[in-house]
Amino acid sequence: MLCALIMAGGKGTRFWPLSTEEKPKQFLNLVGSYTMIQMTVNRILPIIPMERIFICTGERYVNLVKEQLPDLPERNIIVEPEGRNTAPCIALSALVIKRYYKDATMVVLPSDHLIKDENKFTNILIDGNEFLKENKNAILTLGMQPDRAETGYGYINYGDKVNSVINKVEKFVEKPNREKAEEYLASGKYLWNGGMFIWKVDTIIDEIKKYVPNIYEALSDIEIVNENDLQKLINDKYNKTDAISIDYAILEKSNDVYVIPSEIGWDDIGSWKAIERYREKDEYGNIANINSKIIESEENMVINNNKKVVMIGVDNILTIELDDAIFVVNKNCMDNLREYQNIVE
């Protein structure tokens, strides 16, 4: 039975000042008609119903989750007392999901990525689910076909095919320097690691028990605790877990890891330049909504709500409207904006 875990606890600091700790990237409308977390949920609804979708987030974001996903059952909001990286988040969520769906197959997804070919994406999840029916101890990850020598992503070195769509993983590698990234791209044997996984809930719990026993021991009573005491147990025990990523904790140690090479139009929307790639532009390269007017100007981007923005005779400018401020930024500086946060605030 397919269930989904969507990890939505990140602070989204790369998009400051639009994204803040109070309302981070996953709860913003950046590239379409919906917020990033709404887009993530909507693309899996054709194969996973809302009652089997779980969101793991911080306590400060629970109301945002409820507001943006009003049909999500309240029990499906898994609240981390504090951020401790992806391994504790996944362990906590796997144990909670197993309370309700003991034979679950978990699809683990970030909450803030873009996938343009959603039909191909859901077909990949279906293929992964079928593979796990015959290979119950396997761990599956999705690897994106690289189209540039990207230094901002981790990579997956893959080996032989095990069927028509799945390959054995040779190793995971960290974010490379430019020379290494170009080497990986030229080899044709590396994929981008997008942090998306499929596995049986029992498998990931067993792997956690084996490789990071402190995490399992801290949280194991989740399986048996009374529902009314569940959050108290999490609050009391979560800080005893190891703060470690799932890649370091499990994926780099397990022997039964496979990858599905995926050409799905994926992007982690990790920078203002990424937003530029996907927002509609006018004939002069400007990005703006109907509440703005751009005259004799080129290559500008306007992010505004209530206030009308008029730009005349300027080029290469990013304008961001907030409740209490308006930022006017040369686009050459826009991906380093958070460096100015302490000065501005």
Rank of each mutant, 00 (worst) to 15 (best):
E283P: 03
Y284F: 09
N300E: 06
I287D: 04
N289S: 14
D323Q: 12
D282I: 12
I317R: 03
L318A: 03
G285C: 08
D282P: 06
D324M: 07
V310A: 12
I290N: 14
S292L: 11
S292P: 08
K308F: 03
K281Q: 07
E296A: 14
E283F: 11
E298D: 10
I294G: 06
I320V: 09
L322G: 13
A325R: 14
Y284T: 07
E283D: 14
N286Y: 02
N291W: 05
N305A: 13
E296Q: 14
N291C: 08
N286W: 03
V314A: 07
I295K: 13
N305P: 00
I295P: 10
D315G: 00
E298T: 12
G313Y: 01
S292Y: 07
T319S: 12
N305S: 15
K281T: 12
A325S: 15
Y284E: 10
K293R: 15
I317Q: 02
I294A: 04
D324R: 11
N286K: 05
K307M: 13
V314W: 02
D323K: 12
E280Y: 00
I290D: 15
V302R: 05
I317W: 00
T319V: 15
K293I: 14
I326S: 05
K293N: 15
N291H: 11
I320F: 02
N289A: 06
I312E: 13
M301I: 14
K308W: 00
N316E: 04
N316P: 04
V314C: 08
E298A: 12
D282L: 10
E283G: 10
N305G: 07
I295V: 15
I320Q: 01
N300R: 01
A325E: 13
L318G: 02
I326F: 05
I295T: 15
M301E: 05
A288K: 08
A288N: 09
R279P: 05
I317D: 00
A325N: 13
M311L: 12
A288W: 02
A288M: 09
I295F: 11
S292Q: 08
R279Y: 02
V310W: 05
M301Y: 04
N300A: 10
G313W: 01
M311E: 04
Y284D: 13
E321Q: 10
A288S: 15
A325M: 11
N304M: 09
N286T: 08
G285A: 08
K281N: 05
N305L: 13
L322F: 00
N300Y: 03
G313L: 05
K293Y: 08
E321H: 04
I287G: 06
E283A: 14
N316M: 01
I326G: 00
K308H: 08
I303E: 03
E280I: 15
N300M: 07
I326E: 04
V302C: 09
I326P: 01
I312D: 12
G285I: 05
E280W: 00
K308E: 11
I290S: 15
E299H: 12
